[in-house]
Simulated scan of single mutants.
Amino acid sequence: MTTSSISRVPGLFSPDFWQETLALTRRLFIQLQRRPSTLVAGVVQPLIWLILFGALFQNVPSGLFGDSANYGQFLCAGIIVFTAFSGALNAGLPVMFDREFGFLNRLLVAPLASRFSIVLASALFITTLSLIQVVAIASLGVVLGTGLPNVAGIAVVLATVLILVFGVTALSLGLTFALPGHIELLAVIFVINLPLLFASTALVPLQFMPTWLQWVASLNPLSLAIEPIRYVYLHPNWTIADVVMVAPWGAISLGTAIAILLAVAVALSLLIQPLLRRRLA
């Protein structure tokens, strides 16, 4: 296989490309089936967060968290986004372990239609797990009284989560091929995870924060994903032009937040392409 054939993006209708992509994705699910604790922990942990944090602030005065009827309703959007973010940030770990154990080298010398299938398989796997987690969190939220958005609102929730997962998965795969091993990758994940959570609007409204942190939180991609989801949960008659967050630098509408999030995701995917071409070649 020539370098030019590696660097080109395969046709979406190539049967060989999709066959090998699905085969590599199936391999990841077989690994998950053999070690289901990964999925169980990924579902149980956010549910525990939702239950414990919701109970911790259940007696706060009404109206303290904006239009939310209770803190659980306010928190649900933050838990959905942070769970999807954490899962996508770990997307590179299976590829990293394949690198370290030599399986990736076997794939690179195999007669693949395109080595891009290795990357796409990881993305499909992580996206599926993220959707399972979102369904579990939303279902528990209904039990706890958070309710559900309307059909259009559910579409906004899913689209926002998918955009976030797309961008963060690209970042994780880029780190996988840029860092020397899984210890370094895990270190970066640990450093990124909680600071981004606490520097977002997942746990408290923007107006609760000092001015400098409001600037940070309003530029945080997690906040740009959380606020549209939270808004459609709380407002059945929402429109794309409704303001979902008043940042220190201006008001942000629902459509603007999603557009910025999409731009960040596309930028990250374009940024890692040269690195992926070099590493996969």
Score class of each variant (00 low, 15 high):
S4D: 07
S7N: 14
R8M: 10
P10I: 13
A23R: 14
A23F: 11
L32G: 06
R34Q: 10
R35Q: 10
T38K: 11
V43C: 12
V44S: 10
Q45P: 01
L50Q: 13
F57Q: 02
F57C: 03
N59Y: 08
P61L: 14
S68R: 06
Q73T: 10
A77P: 00
I79D: 08
A84D: 08
A88C: 04
N90W: 03
L93P: 00
P94A: 02
V95P: 06
L107D: 06
A113C: 08
S117P: 04
I118P: 00
V119N: 06
S122Y: 05
A123P: 12
L129C: 07
S130D: 11
V135I: 13
A136Y: 15
L140R: 08
A155Q: 15
A155I: 14
V157G: 06
V161R: 15
L162P: 15
L162W: 11
L162K: 13
F166L: 02
G167V: 02
G167H: 01
L175Y: 13
L179I: 13
L186E: 12
V188H: 05
L196H: 00
L196F: 09
S200P: 03
L203V: 08
Q207N: 12
T211K: 02
P221R: 01
N237A: 12
W238S: 03
I240G: 08
V243Q: 11
V244M: 07
M245G: 02
P248Q: 15
A251M: 07
I258A: 04
I258H: 01
L268Y: 05
I272M: 06
R278A: 14
